[in-house]
Design a protein around this nucleic acid. Sequence first.
RNA 1: GGGGGCGUAGUUAAGUUUGGUUAUAACGCCGGCCUGUCACGCCGGAGGUCGCGAGUUCGAGUCUCGUCGCUCCCGCCA
Length: 591
Amino acid sequence: MDRLRRSKYCGDVGKEDLGNPITLMGWVQRKRDLGNLVFLSLRDRTGICQVVCSSDTYPEVHATARTIKPEYCVAIKGNVELRPEKMRNPRMKTGDIEVYAQRIDILSKSCTPPFVVEDGVEVSDAMRLRYRYLDLRRPEVQANIILRHKAAMAARRFLDENGFIEVETPVLTRSTPEGARDYLVPSRVSPGHFYALPQSPQLFKQLLMVAGFDRYYQIVRCFRDEDLRADRQPEFTQIDMETSFLDMDDILDLSEGLISSIFKETIGLELSRPFKRLEYKDAIDLYGIDKPDTRFGMLLHDVSDSVKDSEFKIFSSTVNKGGVVKAINVKAPHGLSRKDIDLLGDFVKNYGAKGIVWARLTKDGWQSPIARFLKEKERWSIENSLDFDEGDLLIFVAGNHDVVNASLGNLRVHIAERLSLATKGTYNPLWIVRFPLLEWSEEEKRLLARHHPFTSPVEEDIPMLETEPLAVRARSYDLVINGFEVGGGSIRIHSRDLQQKMFSVLGISEEEGMRKFGFLLEALDYGAPPHGGIAFGLDRLVMLLAGASSLRDVIAFPKTQKAVCPLTGAPAEVEDKQIAELGIKVIKKEG
RNA sequence: GGGGGCGUAGUUAAGUUUGGUUAUAACGCCGGCCUGUCACGCCGGAGGUCGCGAGUUCGAGUCUCGUCGCUCCCGCCA
């Protein structure tokens, strides 16, 4: 018999095919065997279509159908017929029709799958990843991967239309000491020497600007050997961009165009532009963190002035020692028990706070462990600044600025999740601009670049580089959507002198700078244009678009929290011969 | 590096607080019946290293210690 050729996808079969023979290829979702009548649900990447096999029309086809089990890969040729009125299934896209099979070819049998390949089944992540090729057959997982494809297509189209040129940069490159830990690749031909996988193509895109490409982009894999989170994978994909002769406003505008196009072309949502902007300093003051979710209120208020003379010594002494007391107002927190509030106290301990102080306003006034320590005037002042109404819950945290902001900022997000304050399907893009250029590393006892060492300081702050380096602001920007940092960038340093100065502030000697970044410094000597750019995390963007809660849901073959791939078993031991060829030695840790 | 949660048939879970006969359910799987199912139905059946190791005990899924894996978070990372 000749080979069947597909004429239609399952999800596309419709009334226009009535009476016509079609051929489908797909996987058997379910078999409903009624004896002399067998129904098969056939699935491909477009949807599911019902196939009917009856013993009195094609007995041999019916006999074959009875032997079929879930996940068999089959080809089915048959006629499309309208279903009898009462047998239509309004929940199925193809529920009005069915295919009467005239021929079934079993292309490939299947073992019993370890889990049912169907939306909504509860399977552990470990199982899903171990059998990812089966998990990826599920429509909801496939939809995420297809969404990702559409997002990448939208990005490419927008960037191409705006004059960007995609250039590939090396994956085997040189380790740069600043920033995240590198994944290293030993060189066979240069024993004892190592490549690094790029944390980002940062230096190459700057060199492309020096080379005159003017507008560069790349959808590129980046690697960072750091511990994982739900929104962090060891390898991830960036939409990486760099432009010459543009200022921050131009780059933000282009970025908004890009992000808007992606939202429009994937989920059909029109984002309102321009996106809101917040100075870094204001973000910290109002939200406590640099990636605020603005879908709900509960802003942080500094009540240090109101409590600086309080009889509640924890508050007054904190303020007098230079710390702060801040509070948030959880409006009408239905469903937060005393026990829940105690758990909030445990939550902030993650961020270094000693605990929380709470207060409720009832019709009889303040109800709080510290109510009796607060004077009328102090309570009144707090009530006013926090809009404290009957039924509300205030939560205070006292401590140094960083601890209080981190604690309340993260607590605010935590409570919002707990009380479902953020509307699903809402997207609040927000620019955070002018981050501090530098930060102090307690571990290394030196200044580090907060973004990376090539970030340009704000012009008027340059004189402070030597006097008050921590106050210097960067010409940098992050795009935050719903509390996720989805992108970030900066205007770069394009003067060799300033770059040299930056290295010296970072404690990188001229000799070391030349050795590690000499190629960039040299390039800056050959007519480097003013330039700047940004990179967006494609995985995180798609995660938001998909409404997923983990990056694993939008990556075809993700890794576990230990950076292991349960499907392939990577990373794995290699042959001694391979190790020997590389001129390296494995030191086994004794257990 | 640190803290929390989880680990029991193929899968998902109950049982662990308070140790006690043969470890329970659903789905899946196997056999049989069934011509309008679509989470098909009905009848019957098989299926267990309670993650692993040690300890306490007359007796451990249950208690203790260790260990491994998955996960969420802090540190780390932009």
